[in-house]
């Protein structure tokens, strides 16, 4: 028994990025999740959503709420990350200047997600795509 929901995020869609995180936040509030945990999920979800918009060719955010754990999955269809360890380093970024000018691309996205989640797994294959699974214990 669980609740799940999928949100599509288009590549380069900065104008509406943030909407999925907002919806996730509202749903978790309705489910009675504590606001402290919601905040961490909102931060991680927002970073994920921005990552999909900035770096991916488009993807999805999948929310899963079950007794005891909330799972957030980010799945995209490319381009994939060449060196995952390097990408996890704080301050490391491949974002273009134009993206940085918009206030993004500081190289904190992935580390920030990891720091806010209780569980964090990332798998990526260049040319195929990236999958991130974050869990939040209730």
């Amino acid at each position: 028994m669980g609740y799940n929901m999928t949100f599509d995020v288009e590549s380069g869609d900065f104008a509406t990025a943030g909407q999925a995180s907002r919806k996730i936040k509202k749903k978790l509030q309705d489910l009675g999740i504590s606001s402290k945990i919601i905040r961490r999920i909102a931060i991680a979800g927002y970073e994920g959503e921005m990552n999909l918009a900035i770096h991916s060719d488009g993807g999805q955010i999948l929310l899963d709420a079950e007794p005891g754990v909330i799972t957030l999955r980010l799945e995209d269809t490319g381009p994939g990350i060449g060196n995952v360890d390097l990408a996890m380093t704080e301050g490391w970024s491949t974002a273009s200047d134009s993206v940085r000018e918009m206030g993004f691309g500081a190289g904190m996205g992935l580390p920030n997600m990891r720091n806010n989640a209780d569980g964090f797994e990332i798998t990526s294959r260049p040319g195929v795509g990236t999958k991130i699974k974050m869990t939040f214990d209730l």
Partner: peptide, 23 residues
């Protein structure tokens, strides 16, 4: 203090059930 927010149900399983019904 935050104003108390009323979830769909105090019971998590029931809240999930109601959320699915809402959708």
């Amino acid at each position: 203090e935050p104003r108390i927010f009323q979830p769909l149900d105090e019971d998590f399983d029931k809240a999930i059930e109601k959320m699915n019904e809402i959708e």
